[in-house]
């Protein structure tokens, strides 16, 4: 009895020890970023201390009051949100189709689509650039440097993933439920909206979140397929590494600003992640 109490206590100590360590290790880099963002250029090379002694506001104010930076922020929000919505909707339709119809060849589609995410991206910049500027061209309008261009492009990375996530969850919804609704006289779309969607909602939520985070964070294509109008905040980050002395403070401030929306977002929806992220691999 006594030993079991001991073991229990040890277990608690171990548990909290482990987690405290993990949290400290996790937080320090982010915290350091904030520390740096609060320092002016001349303070940067002072001996490292983990305390924020003073707050150098221009690091934040300069980007925040710069209309160009504001545009980056808005673009990022629009692109990430639209892309996540598009991906979630398409994945819902696609997995519903895959799960409820016997489509010849469809069971191979999943692997084929996910292979698109595997390619090293650098070599694909040129072809996509050419397609955007040459093929999608109406008069002077092209997909280059438009929000739509990036929204569509990110589907390549997010859709296969989303289909994968949703497929397992969709397969877990009994067909009988659909059929019962059909018997009651509901149409296909009604069934989808009233029966299926509520049941797969956690999956939709997690699909939305992961797509959103990816689209918010992507850099290489955003940098190469935009010029002035559709640039995103990650490209702004890279631009802060400029010639006359790297603007570490300002860069840290921008990086901090860049994770804020994602962070707020994550805190609100975090609890759905655990229910949605099973990839259908474990069926009850």
């Amino acid at each position: 009895m006594k030993s079991s109490v001991m073991r229990n206590a040890l277990g608690w100590v171990g548990l909290y020890g482990l987690w405290t360590t993990m949290i400290v290790v996790t937080i320090i880099p982010i915290y350091w970023m904030i520390v740096v963002s609060a320092r002016s250029r001349v303070e940067l090379f002072d001996a490292p201390t983990l305390l924020i002694k003073s707050f150098y506001a221009p690091n934040y104010l300069k980007p925040l009051t710069d209309p160009i930076f504001q545009r980056y922020l808005v673009n990022s929000l629009v692109i990430a949100t639209s892309n996540a919505l598009l991906v979630t909707a398409l994945a819902l339709l696609a997995t519903y189709a895959l799960s409820r119809w016997r489509l010849p060849g469809a069971d191979n589609i999943f692997f084929w689509t996910i292979t698109q995410r595997m390619a090293p991206p650098a070599a694909f910049v040129l072809p996509i650039f050419l397609i955007y500027t040459r093929v999608f061209k109406i008069g002077d309008w092209t997909l280059f440097d438009t929000q739509l261009g990036l929204i569509l492009l990110y589907c390549v990375f997010n859709l296969p993933f989303a289909v994968w996530l949703m497929k397992g969850i969709m397969d877990g919804i009994p067909v009988e439920l659909d059929e019962a609704a059909f018997v009651d006289g509901a149409g296909r779309w009604t069934v989808l909206a009233r029966v299926v969607v509520p049941l797969v909602a956690p999956g939709l939520a997690i699909t939305f979140i992961l797509s959103w985070i990816f689209a918010w964070n992507e850099y290489l294509f955003a940098a190469n397929l935009t010029s002035v109008n559709a640039r995103t905040i990650t490209t702004g980050l890279a631009a802060f590494v400029s010639v006359t002395g790297t603007n570490w403070g300002e860069m840290a401030a921008v990086a901090t600003l860049a994770i804020l929306p994602a962070l707020i977002f994550l805190v609100f929806v975090q609890r759905y992640i655990v229910t949605g992220l099973t990839f259908g691999a474990v069926k009850e």
């Binding site: 895959l98 799960s99 409820r100 119809w101 016997r102 489509l103 010849p104 469809a106 069971d107 397969d171 877990g172 009994p174 067909v175 009988e176 069926k283």
Partner: peptide, 11 residues
Amino acid sequence: NPKLVAPVQHK
């Protein structure tokens, strides 16, 4: 259990 009937049959 209907869940276990693979909705898409491999050909």
